[in-house]
């Protein structure tokens, strides 16, 4: 049955995030011939509406308000619930990002609805929409559906393919005026800490360091490689506990769970709690001095050697081939 699907399109630094297009792709599948309506919210989002059509949105709703400059669960929550009321969708999808994780449960609670968090796959089985999601940080998976009523899900970045970009697609943009009452939470300041600007959860390539990195400075060769590849830098719990880097870089069962196309593990032994966070990456490269390190058991390619020798060589080699290609 054709469905009306509302997709929350998220922007960061006034640019739509890839996962927004992935969520539209997911929405198309669930809509099964019905309508996908993308919502974009912020202080000034006028330039963001076209790409939403190019990636398959049938209709776009924009909401602009100075109170929506920074994300707060109160501000976005009020805006979103009013849109849900006016659109009356059969399903709502949000990216499983910092914002989606914060906002979707509130919306679900408000609507007395079920919510499937962190979906990595969608199948239609008869009338049912069945979501696949990791549990135990990817040590296992489950298939889940909403028993009845409105379908709510958050979509993990990097897992569901967006539609092909088609710049000839267009549609109508609707502007919703929203009443936002006083916000109970106020964002005083946003402090940028991410070094390269590539977000771990959305990165196509991750260069990660473990205890073998030995110091804060030890991350420098990894950062150089990452900069060259447009990659994000991550870390194991060991490296974070030893204060070589910020906890925000931690990948594992505590920390972030990532699924990039390429994961380069440098000086990471591969404790089960780290493997849980990265072993579903598409291709894994392990660089470690210890040939017995368990990271090699999940790696597609391994080099036994000192990361401080291997990583700079790797950077050099990539420089060479990327320049000539």
């Amino acid at each position: 049955m054709a469905k009306k699907v509302l997709v929350f399109a998220e922007a960061r630094d006034n640019e739509l995030r890839n996962v927004s297009f992935e969520a539209i792709g997911a929405g198309k599948e669930i809509a099964a011939g019905g309508e996908v309506i993308a919502v974009v919210v912020g202080e000034n989002v006028g330039s963001l509406t076209d790409p939403l059509f190019h990636y398959g949105a049938d209709r776009v709703i924009k909401v602009e308000d100075e109170k929506l400059k920074n994300y707060t669960s109160d501000g976005y929550g009020q805006a979103f619930i009013q849109i849900v009321d006016s659109v009356d969708p059969d399903a709502i999808l949000m990216p499983h990002t910092s914002i989606g994780k914060d906002l979707a449960p509130r919306l679900a609670s408000k609507l007395d609805a079920g919510l499937v968090s962190d979906a990595i796959g969608i199948e239609l089985e008869g009338e049912d929409v069945v979501f696949t999601r990791p549990i135990y940080s990817g040590k296992a998976f489950e298939k889940k559906k909403i028993k009845e009523g409105i379908i709510l899900a958050t979509i993990r970045p990097n897992n569901i393919a967006p539609l092909e970009l088609d710049e000839s697609r267009s549609g109508e943009v609707f502007e919703e005026s929203i009443k936002i009452k006083d916000l109970r939470t106020i964002v005083k300041e946003v402090v940028r800490k991410s070094t390269s600007g590539v977000d771990l959860s959305e990165a196509k390539v991750i260069v990660a360091g473990g205890r073998g990195v030995k110091s804060e400075e030890g991350f420098e060769p990894l950062q150089e490689l990452a900069d060259l590849l447009g990659a994000a830098v991550g870390a194991s719990r060991g490296a974070c506990d030893a204060d070589y880097c910020d906890y925000s870089l931690q990948i594992g069962q505590t920390g972030k769970v990532v699924t990039p196309d390429l994961y380069i593990a440098c000086g990471i032994s591969g404790a089960i709690q780290h493997l849980a966070g990265m072993s579903n990456s598409k291709v894994i490269v392990a660089i470690n001095k210890d040939p017995e390190a368990s990271i090699f058991s999940v790696a597609d390619y391994g080099i036994v050697g000192d990361l401080f020798e291997v990583v700079p060589l790797l950077t050099q080699e990539f420089k060479k081939v990327l320049q000539t290609s």
């Binding site: 007395d112 609805a113 079920g114 919510l115 499937v116 069945v130 549990i135 990817g138 040590k139 296992a140 998976f141 489950e142 298939k143 889940k144 559906k145 909403i146 028993k147 009845e148 009523g149 072993s279 579903n280 058991s297 999940v298």
Partner: peptide, 14 residues
């Protein structure tokens, strides 16, 4: 409960 788990499985062994 509003949701139902249909199946649980382990990832294919690499």
């Amino acid at each position: 409960a509003k949701t139902e788990t249909i199946e649980r499985y382990l990832p294919p062994k690499k």
